[in-house]
Write a protein that binds this DNA or RNA. Structure first.
Lengths: 166, 166
DNA sequence: GATTCGATGTTATATTATAACATTATTCAT
DNA sequence: ATGAATAATGTTATAATATAACATCGAATC
């Protein structure tokens, strides 16, 4: 099935974020139940932390949040959970930032594009099949076989643009 | 002026690579003369090393090649030259690989797409204005103001595909 | 030639990520 | 239920990438 175009607006400051997190966790649970992989306590916790915001977050940030008091977890702890979540497409990695963000369409096989505001850090995930189609066409000319796409756009989001103009 | 579509084929094993390097250095010299910035010995050397192949190359690889015998240069030496070359668009950074590659269209203001073979490491730089146009249109819907694009596709190049099928 | 400014050298350290092995928890066959 | 097999996590060490801060050098300008 071909992916449908999907634009996720930039989250407004007053959107119901708890609903975002709940939906993400719920979808992850569904996915894991369906496919028989384990969403352990740790993995769920990491997923929740990633979903704390709509901003890509670094592994070491997550690591600190994992153990706010008491002794810290070691890097492999968080990297392994991130690897699991990436493998099952529950999160994305933003290469240009070395950071991670929740996937807005888990379960759907898709190549996404990201619009990332360099001011506020918020990111919107977009699925525009036209971009993939164009890339596939270009790849064909090169005889190239696409496996993975990294499409990350940085700039200023609507709100930060307005703010700047004031 | 709008960028023209340009597909750089994947370099064949028997292309005249010396010509590639010479052209790149020549264009860099031209650019620097024109704009009054300095292409120092170090910067030129780093540019040559980047152009040693059509594969993205890491900063520490370059660093080793800078001083094959004798004591090694320190990281800032190479990073500063890379920063200069990036600033003046003489090279590109490939975020998904933490690596650098010569720019095939120096002097032309352009957003490029990269097709990178995960087998042989070779990369082709493509300029397909259609992709940018689509992204710009999508950005408009989001109220997003694009500053920089990172578009990197990995997979298998023509030759590696064929080789694999054997 | 002295001064200024940009480039490079040098040392130290930050940031991101993984290797290797030990331990604990879960699953599965019996 | 019990023990073997497997998966997940803990732990220690280290690799790989990148930058901060300050010292020195060299080219350009006066």
């Amino acid at each position: 099935m071909r992916a449908k175009k999907a634009i996720n607006r930039f989250p407004t400051p007053r959107h119901n974020h708890t609903a975002c997190v709940n939906a993400a966790i719920h979808e992850a649970e569904d996915y894991c139940n369906k496919t028989g992989v384990r969403l352990t306590e740790l993995r769920r916790k990491v997923l929740e932390l990633v979903w704390n915001s709509h901003r890509p977050v670094g592994a070491y940030d997550l690591l600190e949040q994992l153990a706010p008091s008491g002794r810290k977890a070691a890097p492999p702890t968080v990297y392994r959970s991130l690897d699991f979540l990436l493998e099952h497409k529950l999160i994305h990695r933003i290469d240009s930032l070395n950071a991670f963000i929740g996937c807005s369409q888990p379960g759907h096989e898709h190549d996404a594009q990201f619009f990332i505001c360099k001011q506020c850090g918020e990111a919107a995930e977009l699925i525009d099949p036209k971009i993939e189609r164009t890339l596939v066409k270009d790849a064909k000319q090169l005889g190239f076989n696409i496996e993975k796409q990294t499409i990350e756009v940085t700039g200023l989001c609507n709100r930060c643009n307005k703010r700047r103009k004031i």
